[in-house]
Design a protein around this nucleic acid. Structure first.
Lengths: 146, 146
DNA sequence: TTAGAACATTTCTATATAGAATAATTGAAG
DNA sequence: CTTCAATTATTCTATATAGAAATGTTCTAA
């Protein structure tokens, strides 16, 4: 990026990643950033395809594939071919992964409070509206040829 | 992260990186994301130490060191030991790197317009004020033990 | 003045991420 | 039906990023 908006986003992303990973480590939770994001959406709705996870996380499909590899290794996820459409792989949470949710979300909540320190509820909402608009713009832009 | 705010940031970061790299490639500019961020601040003020670059980009110092390696290889930067304080390495732009600035910034500008599509100037400013507040919070937080 | 603390950078190791190429499956048009 | 295009996922390769440990330099307090 590198003009203001994008430069800010990049910096914030880096800091929040480092801080969040530190918080997780301090709470003995062995989940990395990329893994956490996949769990985050699977906890909301289990049994998704790789593409669907890609769509919801904005990770590239090949990235999802690789991260899922690691999580299968660690016993957090399982892969199953969709019998209805054998091109698709359905990713599902193991009981172990399900058991991590509450502790993880507690730390998430801590992180969120830090992130929005000094923000009123209105400010948070307005800020997230802006983020949502930008996310939509970029999502659309990426699909188009430019 | 993974509660709303941080999750948005992460997603936007990913999309903007992919889009921006595509734009650069289309304009035959051989500069990667991390490299661009270092150039961005050196173009504003040349001859910085590794720590100073780390501070201004929010990249970890070891990351800066590695990225600089690659850029020295490619003839964009040069390293010099500071004679006044031999612990420090001063990073400077080569003429080649200086010559890339205007073309790079043109693409940056394009990216920025896309990023803020549909935003009024007031909205941009308010949004960036929010970003700045969060960046400050996180920068402070990282320095503290928590 | 010198031993140990503090500072600045680099190296080592590991994970995250994505583009390009590849493989497998399904859909669609003749 | 059958061939070719589209879809879905994976593998291969390369860069980005950071924590921990190692290296070299400077500062400080006795």
């Amino acid at each position: 990026m590198e003009t203001k908006g994008g430069f800010y986003i990049t910096q914030i992303k880096q800091l929040q990643d480092r801080i969040f990973e530190r918080l997780l480590a301090q709470n003995d939770i062995q989940i990395s950033g990329g893994q956490g994001r996949i769990l985050f959406i699977l906890w909301k709705s289990d049994h998704l395809t790789v593409s669907e996870i890609s769509r919801q996380t904005s990770l590239a499909v090949n990235t999802v594939s690789i991260v899922v590899d690691g999580m299968v290794q660690k016993g957090m996820l399982e892969r199953n071919i969709n019998p209805t459409n054998r091109r698709q792989t359905i990713i599902s949470l193991t009981d172990y992964a399900k058991s991590l949710q509450s502790r993880y979300e507690e730390v998430s909540q801590q992180m969120n409070i830090l992130f929005y320190q000094g923000f009123s509820l209105e400010e948070q909402q307005q800020f997230e509206k802006y983020l949502d608009r930008i996310l939509n713009t970029l999502t659309t832009a990426e699909k188009e040829d430019f």
